[in-house]
């Protein structure tokens, strides 16, 4: 299930935090400048720009590889798989992000901005978590079915 591993913070080096800060800051500033130049309809697209996704995916890959190499194994495959799994999670989080945007779009004009942004963040959390849980359950059920089919296929006598 879900767990927290604070020791993972030690794996990231100071320059990796700096890269995230600079990329995140640049993307946020750019979103504002694009909205000013081309209007809010175009600028709004960049509020869901995958700002630090490439940097994060490559950091996950390098951390997984480093961990495997320290254990004396080639971690290339493990690193790439780790980055791919992270991307699967991000695709579910992006659906939650659309929920966040829909709440702000539909409700902002009538209520307090702080309240609506807080509600939208809660919607992002709930939608993302629900989708993640549903995907995980589906993967487990399909995995179990696949194992059962494989086992019964091995038990049945082979036709001549």
């Amino acid at each position: 299930m879900i767990s927290v591993k604070p020791s993972a913070l030690k794996e990231s080096k100071p320059h990796e935090y700096l890269i995230r800060f600079v990329f995140g800051g640049l993307c946020t500033a750019a979103a504002g400048l694009i909205a000013k130049r081309f209007g809010p309809a175009v600028g709004g697209l960049f509020l869901a720009f995958p700002a630090i996704f490439p940097a994060s995916a490559s950091l996950i890959e390098s951390h997984e590889m480093r961990r495997k190499k320290e254990a004396g194994m080639d971690g290339t495959r493990r690193g790439r798989d780790g980055a791919a799994v992270d991307a699967a999670g991000a695709s579910l989080g992006a659906i939650g992000l659309a929920g966040f945007a829909a709440v702000v779009w539909l409700m902002l004009n009538g209520s307090s901005a702080v309240l609506i942004i807080a509600t939208a963040t809660a919607v992002w959390c709930v939608v993302s978590l629900t989708l993640w849980w549903a995907r995980r359950t589906l993967v487990h059920v399909l995995g179990r079915q696949h194992r059962t089919h494989t086992r019964s296929a091995n038990i049945l006598p082979k036709r001549p």
Binding site: I2, S3, V4, K5, P6, A8, L9, E11, S12, G24, C27, T28, A31, G32, F46, L47, A48, F49, P50, A51, I52, F53, S56, A57, I60, G82, V85, D86, A87, A88, G89, A90, S91, L92, G93, A94, G96, L97, F100, A101, V104, I117, A120, T121, W124, S128, L129, W132, R135, R136
Partner: peptide
């Protein structure tokens, strides 16, 4: 970084970070 499994941690890659900031 701190959450496990990785598929769950990936959700934070699509957090509304730019939107919250702006």
């Amino acid at each position: 970084d701190v959450f496990r499994p990785k598929s769950f941690a990936g959700l934070f890659g699509a957090a509304p970070s730019i939107a919250l900031a702006t």
